[in-house]
Write a protein that binds this DNA or RNA. Structure first.
Lengths: 162, 162
DNA sequence: GCTTTCTCGGATAGCTAGTATCCGTATTAT
DNA sequence: ATAATACGGATACTAGCTATCCGAGAAAGC
């Protein structure tokens, strides 16, 4: 089981965008450069995030991406569902209806117990991801990352703003 | 994100094996036939389960697979980790160390905050799966599955025992 | 003790989904 | 008008999972 790689980039992008003043935007190419990831690939995930109303696009020259909502109203789950999709990791193929025990379909009224366990597990997983907002992550970064790195980042952002 | 399909078969197999008397075993071919899944493919997952000490193999003529432990000491998580592996779905590629902000490696003492969120989510997911045992699932099947199907299954098992 | 039968076990192809990339079009600020 | 930027589709490439095969080894029966 593996989460899409794009999720990691997506969350990092949101944290970075949360540091921008008011309605400023940053183009996809800059976002990719900042994080050291392939630009063409990141663009795809940015589009997914925009489609899910996590990011908002600013078209035209001096455009780019910005957060669609305040950072404390965007959860990690929002990013995950935008990029990786909202489906459960487990897919029930109704094994109980196959093989020599097969019964007419109408006999199976309740959901398969195995299916149910994974559904619950998926729910608690998503609930946990929904507990953390982009603001929470940003505060963590400000606390844990070395001061020198923060200053470096701030300078880079100013240079890119021009 | 997608869990290996084999997990579903694996759990169903364990539930079926839990219905066998004492130390009786069922060969891989029969297990596959019962569930209507490809035999050669199921064999692979059975081996993984045996390697993880969830199932025990009985070699030679009239051999097969049986549970390695009492059914109430085997959790759904045990099956998942045997077949799908114990790794977290999220893989941190340390994006924060890339791009223009990169700092010497020793500067990063704490684990990345984003990584941490997914680690927690993975833990609650696994904890939830560990709450359900094969016995729990078997009781659910006995409760929810139509009586006719249960009888059909019992007959099939008897015929296979020969 | 030998043979026969049956089983696991690892090695090997095929396929699907996701990763990574490109380019042409539409849109906006300057 | 021009330059910069997002957007969407089309396309190679890759990894991991799906599916299959055949040989080694172990038990059972004579």
């Amino acid at each position: 089981m593996r989460l899409s790689d794009g999720v990691e980039s997506g969350v990092h992008v949101c944290v970075l965008l949360a540091t921008l003043p008011n309605g400023a935007a940053l183009p996809a190419a800059k976002l990719a450069e900042y994080h050291g990831v392939p630009a063409a690939y990141l663009a795809k995930h940015l589009q997914a995030l925009a489609g899910a109303d996590v990011l908002r696009t600013v078209k035209g020259a001096r455009g780019g991406y910005r957060l669609a909502r305040p950072a404390d109203e965007i959860t990690v789950l929002d990013v995950v569902e935008a990029i990786d999709g909202g489906e459960s990791a487990f897919r029930c193929s109704e094994i109980r209806r196959r093989g020599p025990l097969a019964m007419p379909a109408r006999e199976y009224t309740k959901v398969c117990g195995i299916h149910h366990v994974f559904t619950r597990a998926d729910e608690v997983w998503r609930a946990e991801l929904a507990r953390t907002t982009i603001t929470d992550l940003l505060m963590g970064v400000l606390r844990d990352v070395p001061r020198a790195a923060l200053e470096k980042g701030a300078r880079w952002l100013q240079d890119s703003a021009r």
